[in-house]
Amino acid sequence: MSNEYVTLVSSDNFKYVVDKEVASISTVLKNSQGFEEGKTGRINLDMDGDILECIVEYLYYHYKYKDQAESGDVPEFNIPTHLALELLVKADYLDI
């Protein structure tokens, strides 16, 4: 499982190759694997490259620190202010 990857593609054609296990943090991305996206390994997302970059960063942040959350020493995840609103909409869509 851990060496499988999916490609997340933004609307302006930026591609992010992400570990499947990491992408599965988002239930939406996880469930898309049951459909055509599962065969092609490519998920087209309706968001700009900079937004998607933040999202991929968050997914890895979540993956890295999910076990340490309880010990409390997790660094804060920072997002650029000007993307906050749009990111909120997309994060809601991805359920993360």
Binding site: I79, A84, L87, L88, A91, I96
Partner: peptide, 12 residues
């Protein structure tokens, strides 16, 4: 671990 939505809301 905070959800990305929480992070965004905090920022907003």
């Amino acid at each position: 671990l905070p959800k990305l939505q929480d992070v965004c809301i905090k920022k907003i």
